[in-house]
Amino acid sequence: MGKPVLINDQDCDIDLPCPVDEQYITERGPIPEGQQTSPLLATIHVVRSIGQLTRTLRSATISPATLETFELHFNTCLATFPSQFHPRTDQDLDPRSLAPVIYLQNARLLLHRHNISPFCPDIVRSSAMDYCVSTALDTANILARCMRNYPNANALPPGPAGNNDPRALFASGAGSLLCTHIWRCTLLLLFRQEFAGALACVQALASIGDVRTVNAACGRYLSFFLRRLLSRLRRSDGIDLERDEEMMAYVSGDMQGTSDGSWVWHGSETGSQLEAMSPMRSTPVSGGHPAQHERDTEWEGWEWIEKTVQELFTEQRQRAYSQRDTPMGGQSRQEVPTNSGSTLAPELATSDSDRRSSSAHSRMTIASII
């Protein structure tokens, strides 16, 4: 098979479906009641932006104006999704219907992750990490709503072998893009010590297990990354990982696997540049990828990863409780979600939406992208 080619809009003479028509797209044909739509139109608009996103990622950095334009477009796409796909709702979601919203989440994550490169100023890198973690938390909430045993799970069409267990349904519909997107989100959430969201992501990946080959590779890398993270956390509770260039390279994951985004070996075939930049170096970075030397060794398995992240989350929550209950105690380093529901970080909704609303003021138009 040949390499797939993206189709340019100007090469087509077929109109896109309109929202007024889309509400009548159903599997069995009858016209639905109300204004419920399918995610088809939203998916089309997301995919249309991929070509321009790919070209944008070839630049060393992405300008604020370009980021705002993409954000405006992605927010517009999200608004056209049915309500159950929105990241901060608490509605039940069929595990097999994830693909459309994951396309959007993955595109948004790749966009902002590009600026965590050391070629960007510190303030730009920090802002990029904020957006990445916000997107990862949104993904974690979506996954949590898919994985829980919600009351009407038995009303879903049966999955393989008649199994309606949400985890089995989730695994049956998981593709490579979903696995790699959740893996990227998990790295970012662990890095920022958002252990509640990271746990939801790890449980989703663990449910897929070895069904997908790429998922086993993701698990091996997560095991490696988690051990490196634990070694840092044991040294100091107040460590600033974003000033540790070795950990920044590890959290960038597959960015180091392409010539467009890789910076680990930039200007140094031996990796000495990274060694000089990292203030807390503990192990050498060898091979063409951060965890190259781990590939041929045994790893602990998903059970160990899930157990370790659960313990980190429990310790974090207990520490936050003890500090809150101490009259003269200091505030905790970060907000820890205390609810047991699927909405993992409701406290982030206001600040994040305020930050993203600035995209509406961009002087560029969506037409400059599509």
Rank of each mutant, 00 (worst) to 15 (best):
T56R: 02
V124N: 05
D352E: 13
Q23L: 15
S368K: 10
R227T: 08
D244P: 01
V133W: 01
E335F: 10
Q105S: 13
S127T: 03
Y103W: 12
A155D: 15
F74C: 09
R145E: 07
I369V: 14
P95A: 11
G253P: 08
T139S: 10
W265G: 11
G159C: 15
W263Y: 03
F313T: 02
N339Y: 07
E33R: 12
T37G: 01
A79N: 14
S83F: 05
G2E: 15
V124G: 03
S286V: 09
H73F: 07
D352H: 15
H289Y: 11
E242F: 03
D94W: 01
R324K: 10
V47Y: 00
T186K: 01
A107L: 05
E68W: 00
F224L: 03
G173E: 09
I182H: 04
S351R: 15
L137R: 08
E33N: 09
D15F: 01
D260E: 07
V214F: 00
T314C: 05
T135P: 00
Y250C: 05
A168E: 04
E245W: 11
G287R: 07
Q273Y: 04
G173A: 15
H266K: 14
G2D: 14
T56K: 10
V285I: 13
E33C: 08
S272M: 09
L230D: 02
T80G: 10
Q84L: 06
L57G: 08
G51Q: 02
R356F: 12
G261M: 05
D13C: 05
R48T: 05
L41T: 06
Y250M: 08
E311H: 12
V20K: 00
P160G: 11
P95F: 12
C201T: 10
T180W: 04
Q292R: 02
T54N: 08
V214T: 03
L229Y: 12
R28Q: 13
D254A: 12
P337I: 00
Y103K: 09
R234Y: 03
